[in-house]
Design a protein around this nucleic acid. Structure first.
Lengths: 235, 235
DNA sequence: CGTCAAATTGAAAATTATCAACGAGAGTGG
DNA sequence: CCACTCTCGTTGATAATTTTCAATTTGACG
């Protein structure tokens, strides 16, 4: 949240209290399973995770990739049972906390409450972008969008990333995020490569023509264009 | 919100202040256009509306259908420019209000702030369900899901609706919501009819086999299974 | 070196889109 | 009251996209 607006010491301390406890999570481990009774909320401190849903026929839809600083399991605020599954894509560190801790913070620091609403709207915009992508864009565009999104969000943690990245996703995972089969993801990656938009060597992807890739993907960066001028003063 | 939890008089009055101004909107009219500078937020008081996005190639994705009681344009809380378009599907009445009004309410009534977060999570779950549907279910299932969802949400306003409803959507609109063409929506409706799951006569749809329809659609009602026991006491 | 998950490729099948035509019903102006 | 027009729904034929199935190949790692 500190990336959105500058935070006072008191606010910082309040947020830090959410991160008092830490828990390491291994790649592949699930910390919240769909339809299980919900428990804690989490902040992702280190690593990459994903939120997903499983359908009756066994297929999986990845809803969102999660990066350090993201809050996870907010559905506990509304539901008795979790609507989504949370799984680590890399070895990660999470900070579990209670719903009550959130209530307290928002009570004591109204501006942080407002920031959470902002955070919620950014997430919402990201979800609706993906909805539009799944509903109305080609397989190639959807794969391109995942690549760009991954790059941008990884860059928020590690500024050194520019046009080359290690995805850390299998083609099956890309397929589960884009609503495609792993086989077709493979073909789309090859097409993007043949078109000269990307280059690949061992799981490392280079953006050979970033502008064209962004155009191909219909990509909009939802961490841009924010307007936080209305936020209440810090207290 | 009063449907979620019982509301005190003070809370009720605070919310009523958001609905002081009213504005009638004609079917087809747009009250917020994508990429336009955002202005007010709205509560839908009467009628049915939709939120949608337009893609570069001119195709449209309907993100969500909106019913009385829904808040609209919350993206103004985060963005300078609107990420989605808001359009009336029937003659409607909306109540515009300012961001500041929301801040005040949340400041004065923490429990209403918490309820807004709950509301946000319900919306989120609805969006992720649709994401999974677009990514991983068949055309027939997606069309069935729209029918059931419409029925359930209309029933929240009008309890007399049980197994028959007037959709109020063209097949093109159903297509824009499900990521299909109008032609294919037509064929899927015919299939659902041939399968004996629904019956149709003039735009009126009857659920002939509700259980099978829900199974076909993979439908989960996100207004069920809420847990609001953690909410702070009213103040 | 052996093993196993992941990536790659080809061929065939299934799903969905596109194109084109026609019909039914609702308003509109003469 | 009668063309006329327009949107919406319907249907058939064909094309494009994506999946499925079945092999291989590659690379990482014990």
């Amino acid at each position: 949240m500190g990336d959105l607006v500058s935070i006072t010491t008191a606010e910082h301390d309040a947020l830090a209290r959410l991160e008092e406890r830490e828990r390491a999570v291994r790649r592949g481990a699930t910390i919240q399973r769909e339809n299980d009774r919900v428990g804690e909320l989490f902040i992702l401190k280190k690593g990459v995770m994903m939120s997903s849903m499983l359908l009756d026929d066994g297929s999986r839809q990845i809803l969102r990739f999660l990066f350090p600083g993201d809050m996870m399991g907010l559905s506990s605020l509304a539901y008795r049972e979790a609507p989504e599954t949370l799984t680590a894509l890399s070895d990660s560190v999470i900070c579990p906390f209670e719903r009550a801790a959130l209530s307290e913070i928002v009570g004591a620091h109204p501006r942080l409450g407002a920031l959470m609403m902002v955070y919620g709207q950014i997430e919402r915009a990201a979800l609706t972008d993906r909805l539009a992508a799944l509903g109305r864009t080609s397989a190639k565009a959807r794969v391109a969008a995942v690549l760009i999104d991954m790059r941008n969000r990884l860059r928020m943690i590690d500024k050194s990333i520019t046009d080359t990245l290690v995805l850390g996703l299998t083609q099956e995972e890309i397929g589960d995020a884009t609503g495609l089969t792993a086989v077709h993801v493979n073909r789309m990656l090859r097409q993007l490569e043949d078109d000269g938009l990307i280059a690949r060597e061992h799981g490392r992807i280079t953006f050979a023509n970033e502008r064209a890739l962004i155009r191909e993907a219909n990509y909009v960066d939802r961490y841009q264009g924010l307007d936080l001028s209305w936020l209440p003063a810090a207290r």
